[in-house]
Design a protein around this nucleic acid. Structure first.
Length: 232
DNA sequence: ACATTAAATTCGA
DNA sequence: TCGAATTTAATGT
């Protein structure tokens, strides 16, 4: 359990909760820290928790049956994930790995379902979250076909700048080129080249240990154009 | 893989 | 507590 101020800090969705819902959430949430490289959630196990990243960075990766692995998302501070598995009560279909030392918040399935069924505010939040998630996965299908590193980097970056999934994200992201490479599935030197190209187009600005996005819309379009041209 | 540069840390005053 | 020196981490090629 955490105190009220802490819950507001780590869980953006708690802001409009009714009093009872807020109290239940406050009592149920616990925090846990992981070292860089540690597995936060194993595939096929414990999807009884909904997970929020308080601090740090994790990547979600799916392992298909033929052993091929696909990283499909990077989640940084402010992002919550796993609502799909929790709602359906099924096993997690992906594993979660910390890319740097990370603290997560966990909300157990029982409390999650109670909030879903009894709190209008929470349900509203969830609908928005699931809608964004759906849009993201539709984009992911296109992303699969575009192998150009620049487009992959653009897509990975754009997904991490989503203001619905990451409420407090501004135009700046604290992430190294190596971490971004791990999420996009390219080597660090390739990530570096792709980022330089995007910077050259004036879409973003590179900094030491971080990136400032100048044209988010253009960044998102980058993926769409790449997918459209390769199709057919 | 290597050279360069930025940041974090240590150390001495 | 300040700043220079050293070490570590990130970037660029």
């Amino acid at each position: 359990m955490v105190d009220a101020e802490r819950l507001r800090t780590i869980a953006n969705w708690s802001h409009d909760l009714e009093d009872e819902a807020f109290e239940r959430a406050r009592n149920a949430v616990r925090e846990k820290s992981y070292r860089q490289g540690a597995t936060v959630c194993e595939k096929d196990r414990d999807s009884r928790d909904w997970v929020g990243v308080v601090d740090g960075l994790v990547k979600l990766r799916a392992l298909s049956e033929d052993g091929k692995e696909v990283t499909f998302s990077g989640v940084h501070a402010g992002g919550w994930f796993g609502e799909g598995s929790v709602l359906k009560g099924e096993r997690r279909r992906y594993e979660v790995v910390a890319l740097r030392d990370t603290t997560v918040a966990l909300l157990d399935r029982g409390t999650f379902m109670w909030l879903f069924e009894n709190s209008a505010a929470f349900s509203r939040f969830l609908v928005g979250q699931l809608n964004e998630r759906l849009g993201y996965f539709i984009g992911l299908v296109e992303n699969d076909r575009m192998l150009e590193p620049t487009a992959r980097i653009a897509k990975a970056l754009a997904s991490m700048m989503n203001p619905v999934l990451f409420p407090d994200v501004g135009d700046h992201l604290k992430i190294t080129q190596e971490e971004l490479g791990l999420i996009a599935g390219v080597s660090r030197p390739i990530a570096n080249q792709a980022l330089k190209a995007l910077q050259g187009d004036g879409i973003l600005k590179l900094e030491y240990g971080g990136i400032t996005v100048i044209e988010l819309a253009t960044l998102q379009d980058f993926g769409d154009i790449g997918a459209g041209e390769t199709g057919g």
